[in-house]
Design a protein around this nucleic acid. Structure first.
Lengths: 225, 225, 225, 225
DNA sequence: AATGAATGAGTCTTCATTCAT
DNA sequence: AATGAATGAAGACTCATTCAT
C-alpha cells in the first residue's frame, strides 16, 4: 500500500519514510556544524534518540547518506533557480534572477553551502560535486550565451563568466550572510552588481539613475591598462 | 653551532629543521590529496619511512601541524602578492598585479588551495582561516579604496569588491587550473578581465584595442535593468 | 482440515509447513555456500523475499534451525543407507551397498556434506554431530561384526574399520565429486575398492577377473613389513 | 640490528617477534577451542592482557592471521612427514612411516587438525587449504607410484590411494585421539593396518606372524563379489 | 633524535532478535 | 501469518598519542 521510496531497496511505510528524512535532515545539520568526519553515526542516532541499527536500516553507509544529501541539495538549488527564472524571458533578466536565486538559496541553506565546500575538498565527494556543479555552470552559461548572441552583453567565454558568477556568489554569501548578518536581498543586489560590472565597471548609482550612458565609465582605466 | 629554531619549545639543529620541514611538506601533500581526516599520522610517518616518535618530536599534534601549514601558506601567499606589486605605484596596476599574483600562487600551490577549502568548512580550522583571509581581503580592499578615492574606479564598497575578486580568483583557478589544464597566465588574464568588467562590462577586445571609449558598452543593458 | 505439524510448539497449516521447509532448504544452501556464521538471518529472509518476522515465526533461532538441518540430514543419510541395503542379506554385500549408498548420498547432497564438516569443527554443533555420527558408525560396525563372526572377513575391531570406511568415503567424495567432476558411481567403486583392499591389497583388476585367489597378493609386502 | 620477520612490512625487534608468535599461538588455541568466528579479536587480546592495537600492529586482520596459522601448520606437517621418512629408502616403508608421522603430528596438534576441518568448510579458507592439501596428497601419491612401478603394491590410481590414506588418518585420529584417549602409536598402527589392507585384507595378526601366505585371505570374499 | 611497542577510546558496521501493526 | 521498524550489544578495525629504550 505504502508508496515506495528507494532506500537500500527496501519498501518503506509512511512512518519509515518520515524517519528516513528525519535522519537525513538531522545529519545535514550535524555535518554542517561539526564537519562530516567529526560527526559520527553514533552522534547522529544519539542525537535522535534512536538505536544504532536504525541508521543502517535506512542508509547503506555514512558515505552514501552524505552523497544523498549532496545530490538532493544540488537538485534543490537547481530547481529553485529554475523556478525563479521561469516567468522571465529576457536573457539578462534571467541571468540576474538566477544570481539572486542562488544567493537567496544559499542564505536559506547555509548548512548546505558549507557541506558543498567540504565536499569539494575531499576526493571521495569531489567527483559527485563536480557533476552537479557542472550542471549549474552550464545552465548559467547557456543564458549568457543567449545574451551574447543577442548582442546584449559583450562577447566573452560564457562558461568562464558563469564560473565567475558562481565564485562571487559563493564568496559574498559566505562573507556577508554565513559569517555576517547581511540581508539576503541586499547581498543579492551586491552580487548582481559586482557580477555585472566588475570593480571597474559602472557603479550601481551610475547605472541606476542615469540614461546618460555617455558618462564614460572610467576613461582613466583604459589609459592605465 | 647550528642556528636555532623553535618547535615544541625545542631547539633544533639544522638537520632537525630539515626533518621538520620535510614532515611539513609531505603532510601538506597527503592532506591535500586524501583529505585532512583520512590522512593519519601513521600515513605521514609511514610515507616518510620514519618512526612514529619523529612526528611527535617535532609537532605537538596533528591539529597543530595542520594549523601551521595553514598559517604558513597564508603568510606565503600574502608575501607573494606583496612582492608582486612592490614595484608598482599606480593603484589600478597594483590591483591587477595582485589578482594575477593570486592566480599564479594558487596555480603553483594547488594543494594549499584545496587545504584552504577544507579548512574553511570545519569549525576547528575556520577560525584560523578567517584571520588570514581577512588580511588578504583588507589588503585588496585598501588598494581599491585608494583607487576609488583617486577617482580611478567608481565608488563601491571596497571590501565587497575585494570579496568578489577573491571569489572569482578561487573559482576560476579551481575550474581551469586544478581541474583543467589552463595556462596560469591566461587564466590570470581571464580573472582580471572578469573582475574588472563583470559580464556586462567591456569585453577585453573592446578595451584592448579601442580608444573609442564612446562605444557605449551596452545600451541594451541600461534599458533592461 | 490441514494436517498439523509442530514448530515452536505451533500448529501449522499445510501452507505453513511449506513455508517452513522452504526456509529450511534455502538456509541449507546458503549455509553451505557461504558458511554458517557468514550467513545472516537477514540473508536468508532477504533471499526468500520475505520479512524478518517469518523466520522467527517458524524457528526459535538461527542455531536451532541449523541443528534441525543437521539432524534431518543425518536422519536422511541413515534412512538412505538402510533402504539401500534392505534387500540384501549377505553381510559383505550389505557393507558394500552401504558404502555405495554413502557415496551416492553425499554426491547428491554436497551442501550437507559441507555442513557436516563445519558442524564438527565448532563445539556448539559438535555435540549434536557426534550422536548422529556414532549411529552411522555403529550401523556399519554391526555389519562388519557380523561378517567377522561369519568368518567372511578377517578379525579386526569393527568400529575402527567403520571409521576407516567413513574417512575414505568422506575424503574421496570431497576430492572427486565436490571439488572434481567424478561420476558418483565410479567414485563409489573406487571407495569400495580402497575400503576393501587398502593400498596393498588386491587391485580391482585382480579381484575382478580372477578366481585364482591363490595369486598371493604381494609377497614383497610381508617381507618388508 | 634486529633480524627481520615479515609482518605488515614492519621491522620487528626480538621482543616484537616474541609478541607476534605469542599472539599466533594463543589465537590458534582459541580458534580451535571456540571456533574461528566465535573467537573475537577482543577475546584474543583480552586473553593475552594486551591492548587491542597490539593485534593490528602485528597482523593485518583476523583473516590474515588465520591464513598464516593455516599455512604454517600445513608447512609444519609436511616438514614433519618429510623428516620422518628421510632415512628410509624402501618405498613401502616410506609410505608407512609417512602415515605414522601424519597420525603422530595430528595427535600432537589436535587444535590444528580441527582448524583444518573448519577451514575446509568455508570458502574464504578452502582455497588456501586446497593448495597445501594437494601438496600432501601428491607427496604421498608419488611414493605410492614408486611402489607400484616397483611391483611392490598392486596397480591402482596412486592419487586415489593417497586420498584414501588421508581420509582414514583424519577420521581415526579424530575418533580415537581427539575425541577418545587412544595412544597415538597404537592408533598409528591401526591406521597403517587399515590403509594397507582395507577391511577385507589380511589382518595384522595374519600378516605379522605368518609366512603362511597360503592362508588365502578371504576366499569367501571373491565369491561374494 | 629516533624507533618500535603499546594503548584504548572510538569508528563504522552487522546481526540475532523482538515487537507493534 | 507476515511485515517493516527498532534495538543494542558486539564485531573488526583505526588512530592520535605516549613511552621505554
Amino acid at each position: 500500500m505504502a508508496r515506495q521510496s528507494k532506500s537500500k531497496g527496501r519498501t518503506l511505510t509512511s512512518k519509515g519514510r518520515q524517519r528516513r528524512s528525519q535522519i537525513l535532515s538531522y545529519a545535514t545539520v550535524r555535518f554542517a556544524s561539526d564537519g562530516y568526519h567529526p560527526t559520527s553515526v553514533a552522534d547522529i542516532v544519539g542525537g535522535l534518540g534512536v538505536g544504532k541499527g536504525v541508521f543502517y536500516w535506512y542508509f547503506e553507509s555514512k558515505e552514501q547518506l552524505f552523497l544523498e544529501i549532496l545530490r538532493d541539495a544540488q537538485k534543490d538549488l537547481r530547481r529553485y533557480q529554475r523556478d525563479s527564472i521561469a516567468d522571465l524571458t529576457d536573457p539578462i533578466e534571467r541571468i540576474e534572477a538566477g544570481i539572486r536565486a542562488g544567493v537567496i538559496w544559499m542564505a536559506d541553506n547555509p548548512e548546505l553551502r558549507r557541506l558543498f565546500e567540504f565536499a569539494r575538498s575531499e576526493d571521495t565527494f569531489a567527483r559527485s560535486m563536480k557533476v552537479g556543479e557542472a550542471t549549474l555552470i552550464s545552465d548559467a552559461a547557456e543564458h549568457l550565451r543567449i545574451a551574447i548572441d543577442a548582442g546584449r552583453i559583450p562577447c566573452r567565454d560564457p562558461e568562464a563568466l558563469a564560473h565567475g558568477i558562481f565564485g562571487v556568489t559563493n564568496q559574498l554569501t559566505m562573507a556577508y550572510i554565513d559569517h555576517g548578518d547581511g540581508d539576503p536581498a541586499e547581498v543579492a543586489d551586491l552580487v548582481v552588481s559586482i557580477c555585472r560590472n566588475g570593480f571597474a565597471g559602472l557603479s550601481d548609482q551610475l547605472t541606476g539613475d542615469s540614461n546618460s550612458a555617455d558618462v564614460i565609465v572610467n576613461p582613466a582605466w583604459s589609459r592605465t591598462v
